[in-house]
Nucleic acid binder design. Structure first.
Length: 693
DNA sequence: GAGCACTGC
C-alpha cells in the first residue's frame, strides 16, 4: 500500500479560530489542531461549557459555534438556553436544520433528555407535520424552509427570542436566504439572539457576514450596548481520529482507482466496513460490477466482501440493505453518492475512499438550462467525507488525489447552491417578505446578476410582478403563498378561473415528485407496457391524471401500484402534496372545481403557466426535432414521454434536461392560439404572424 | 429509445 499511498502531513489545515484573534473563547482544541493550540487549550468541564454559551448569548447578538460531530451542540445548546430563561414570557427558542429527518431526530432526542413528551415543551414542525402545542412549546425544531414560510406571516419572527441555525456551512438556498433575513431582522430587533452553527472552516466567513461594525451605515447598534462583533466558540466532538492518506500521483480513472483501493484495504487492513464516495449511478454500477468480477475471478483473494450500491434512486428495499451489519467474517463495502455525506449515516464505517468528485447542479441564466456536472468537491466536503470513517473507532481515509492538489487547488468552501440555481422561487419569496430592493439584498453569497434579472423577467411575464417589480394583487401574492415553482403556481391560479383546479392540482402534485414510475434494469419493457395503459394522446400531464384516477379508484392500494409499475411511495407523496395544495388554494380564495372530462380546459390552464416553454416541430424534421419559441433552441421529446415518436406539431414542456441532446420532459400538446391568449405581452405581434403561418 | 447528485416548502 505504501507504493501508492502517502499519509497526510496533519497540519492545522483551514483552522480558522485561534486564540490570537481576541474575543475567541477556547473550550478545547480540534483534533486537527496543531501543537501550539494543543498546549494552550483548556479542557473545561461541562458546566463551564454551559456557562460559556450563556455568557456569549448574553453579551453577543450573534454567536458562531463550530464543532464536530457528537459535540452535543445541536441538542445541548437549546436546553441551556431554555434553562437560562430565554423562552420566558411566551417566547420560543427555534432551532433549524436543513433536513426533515434531522429535525425529527434532534427534537425527539432533546425531548427524551428533558424527560418530556414530544409535542409539549419540545416540539417540531416540518412540511406536512406540526408536532407542537402553541400553549406549552418552548423549544421548537424546524426546517429552515418552514421558518422562511413562517416569516411571510411574521416577518420579524416576533415569537422567537433565540434562533439557532444548524449546519449553516452546508449553504443550502434556504439557509442562505434565512441568514440574510436574520441579519436584517437583527437591526430591527437587537434583542434577538442568533446562534449560527457551522463547520470550522466556514466560521470566519459566517462571523464576518454578521459583523455589523464593518458596515459604516450601522452605527446605531452601539446604542444598545451590545458587542456587535460575533463571537466564535469552538467545541470538541467525540469523533475518533481519522488518518488521511493521499494518492502519490494524480489518478486517471477514479472508478478503477476506487476499486483497487477497496481491494487493497480488504487485503491488508483489519476488519471494518468501507464507504466509497463516487458521483452517480453510472460510476457506482460500474464499480460494483468491477468488484464483483474481481471477487469471482480471484476467488479466495477477495472473498468476504459484500458490495452494496447506494443512491437515492435505488428502490427502498435495496437501500435498506446498507444498514444491516455485515455477517461475521465479512466486510461490507458501500459504494455511494453524496447521499452518505450528509443525509444518511452508516454505522460501522472504518475506511473511507474519496474520489474527490460529486455531481453538482449548475444553472445557466443565459440559456435558462440547469445541468448536472461532475465537479471537484471542496475541502469542507472532503473533511466531512473523511469524518464518516471515525464514528466508531479510529479510521482511515484514502483520498484519490494528491496532497498537493488538496492543499493548493481544492477550494475551501465550494460554490453555494444559490450561485448555481434558478432564482425564480427565491425572488418571489423575498418579494413576499417585503424585500423591495432584491438586487441590493445582503446575501452571505450573492447570486449572479444575470440569474436575478432572468428571474425578474420570468416573474414579470407571469404577471406576478408589475412594472415596478412589485407583487401584483392578487396573482403575485397568491403565487407566493403556494410552495411550488411560480410557473406551476400560476397554472393553479389559472385553473381556478377556468374551472379545472381539481385536475391541475393533481398534475402539480405529480410534477413535484421525482417520478411516479418504477424504473430499473430488466423491467423496462414491462414498465413501458404498463405506462401505455394510462397513456393519453394529449400528453404526459393527462397521463398523470389517468394514473392518479386509477390509484384513487384502487383505494390507494400498494398492490395496484406494484401491478402497474407505479411507485407507491411517490403516489403517497402526491396525495400528501395534493391535500396541502387544496388547503392553501382554499385559504387564498381559489375555487376548487373539477373540469370533469374536459381535457382541453386543463391544457389551457397548463399553457397559462408554461407558455414560455412552447415548442414547435421543425418542418420537414424526420428525427423529431423541435425548436423552442423563445430562443429557437433545438430540443427533442424525451423517450420517457408518452408523446415520444408521436411528435405533435405544438407542445409545451415542464422541464428541459441537457445530456448529449436537449430533451424536453413532461410534454403536452397545445393549440398555438392559446399562447397569445395566455401571454399576449410575451408573444408579440411578429411572433403571432409566425404562429399563424 | 434514455437516464435520474441531494435536499426542501
Amino acid at each position: 500500500m505504501s507504493q501508492f499511498w502517502k499519509p497526510g502531513t496533519e497540519r492545522a489545515e483551514g483552522r480558522v479560530v485561534d486564540d490570537e484573534e481576541g474575543g475567541v473563547l477556547f473550550l478545547c482544541g480540534s483534533r486537527y489542531g496543531h501543537a501550539s493550540i494543543e498546549k494552550q487549550r483548556q479542557r473545561l468541564p461541562v458546566f463551564k461549557y454551559r456557562t460559556a454559551i450563556l455568557y456569549l448569548v448574553e453579551t453577543h447578538a450573534t454567536t458562531v459555534i463550530v464543532g464536530e460531530t457528537g459535540s452535543g451542540k445541536t441538542t445541548q445548546i437549546p436546553q441551556y438556553l431554555n434553562e437560562a430563561g430565554w423562552a420566558a414570557g411566551g417566547r420560543l427558542i427555534a432551532c433549524t436544520q436543513p433536513r426533515r429527518l434531522a429535525v425529527q431526530a434532534v427534537a425527539s432526542r432533546v425531548a427524551q433528555e428533558m424527560g418530556v413528551q414530544l409535542g409539549e415543551q419540545v416540539g417540531y414542525t416540518i412540511r406536512f407535520e406540526d408536532v407542537t402545542n402553541p400553549d406549552v412549546t418552548v423549544l421548537k425544531f424546524l426546517t429552515d424552509g418552514v421558518l422562511l414560510r413562517e416569516m411571510m406571516d411574521d416577518p420579524l419572527l416576533t415569537k422567537y427570542s433565540v434562533i439557532m441555525v444548524d449546519e449553516a456551512h452546508e449553504r443550502s438556498i434556504s439557509t442562505d436566504i434565512l441568514l440574510g433575513l436574520l441579519k436584517k431582522i437583527q437591526r430591527r430587533r437587537p434583542e434577538l439572539r442568533l446562534i449560527i452553527s457551522s463547520a470550522t472552516i466556514e466560521a470566519k466567513s459566517m462571523s464576518n457576514f454578521f459583523c455589523m461594525r464593518k458596515k459604516r451605515q450601522e452605527p446605531e447598534n452601539k446604542e444598545h450596548g451590545l458587542q456587535v462583533e460575533p463571537a466564535i466558540l469552538s467545541v470538541e466532538g467525540r469523533g475518533f481520529n481519522v488518518q488521511i492518506n493521499y494518492a502519490e500521483e494524480p489518478v486517471q480513472d477514479y472508478v478503477q482507482a476506487a476499486v483497487s483501493t477497496v481491494l487493497l484495504i480488504h487485503e491488508r487492513e483489519p476488519a471494518g466496513d468501507i464507504l466509497v464516495f463516487l458521483t452517480g449511478q453510472d460510476d457506482i454500477d460500474a464499480a460494483v460490477q468491477l468488484l464483483n468480477d474481481e471477487i469471482q475471478n480471484t476467488g479466495k483473494h477477495s472473498s468476504g466482501l459484500i458490495v452494496l450500491p447506494l443512491y437515492s434512486g435505488l428502490p427502498r428495499a435495496e437501500q435498506e440493505l446498507v444498514f444491516s451489519p455485515a455477517p461475521r467474517g465479512k466486510r461490507k463495502v458501500v459504494i455511494s453518492t453524496n447521499i452518505a455525506e450528509t443525509s444518511l449515516t452508516l454505522e460501522g464505517i472504518v475506511y473511507v475512499v474519496d474520489s474527490g468528485f460529486s455531481k453538482q447542479r449548475f444553472y445557466n441564466p443565459i440559456s435558462d438550462i440547469e445541468n448536472l456536472v461532475v465537479s471537484p468537491i471542496s475541502k469542507a466536503s472532503a473533511r466531512q467525507r473523511a469524518g464518516r470513517a471515525g464514528r466508531v473507532r479510529p479510521g482511515k481515509c484514502y483520498r484519490l488525489y494528491t496532497e498537493e492538489y488538496f492543499l493548493n487547488h481544492m477550494s475551501n468552501e465550494g460554490i453555494p447552491e444559490i450561485q448555481r440555481s434558478n432564482m425564480v422561487s427565491c425572488v418571489i419569496q423575498l418579494k413576499a417578505l417585503g424585500i423591495d430592493n432584491i438586487l441590493g439584498f445582503d446575501w452571505p453569497a450573492s447570486p449572479s446578476a444575470e440569474a436575478m434579472i432572468r428571474a425578474l423577467e420570468v416573474l414579470y411575464s407571469l404577471g406576478v410582478l408589475d412594472d415596478d417589480a412589485r407583487l401584483t394583487s392578487p396573482t403575485g401574492f397568491q403565487v407566493a403563498e403556494i410552495p411550488l415553482d411560480p410557473m406551476v403556481s400560476k397554472m393553479i391560479i389559472a385553473s381556478s378561473q377556468l374551472g379545472c383546479s381539481e385536475e391541475i392540482i393533481t398534475i402539480a402534485a405529480v410534477l413535484s415528485v421525482q417520478s411516479i414510475w418504477i424504473s430499473g434494469r430488466g423491467i423496462q419493457k414491462e414498465s413501458d407496457e404498463a405506462k401505455l395503459r394510462f397513456a393519453a394522446a394529449e400528453g404526459d400531464h393527462i397521463t398523470f391524471l389517468n394514473v392518479y384516477k386509477g390509484f384513487h379508484q384502487s383505494g390507494k392500494s400498494s398492490q395496484w401500484c406494484h401491478k402497474n409499475y407505479v411507485n407507491y411511495h411517490a403516489m403517497r407523496k402526491v396525495v400528501e402534496v395534493r391535500e396541502q395544495l387544496k388547503r392553501i388554494a382554499k385559504r387564498i380564495g381559489l375555487v376548487l372545481k373539477s373540469g370533469e372530462n374536459d381535457m382541453q380546459v386543463v391544457r389551457i390552464a397548463v399553457t397559462a403557466g408554461f407558455f414560455a416553454n412552447a415548442c414547435h416541430l421543425e418542418a420537414y424534421s424526420h428525427n423529431g426535432m423541435y425548436k423552442t419559441l423563445r430562443g429557437s433552441q433545438e430540443v427533442y421529446i424525451h423517450p420517457s414521454s408518452v408523446l415520444f415518436r408521436v411528435n405533435p406539431k405544438w407542445v409545451i414542456y415542464n422541464s428541459l434536461v441537457s445530456t448529449d441532446r436537449q430533451y424536453i420532459r413532461n410534454v403536452i400538446t397545445i393549440d398555438p392560439s392559446w399562447l397569445l391568449e395566455a401571454a399576449p405581452h410575451f408573444y408579440q405581434l411578429q411572433q403571432s404572424n409566425h404562429l399563424l403561418r
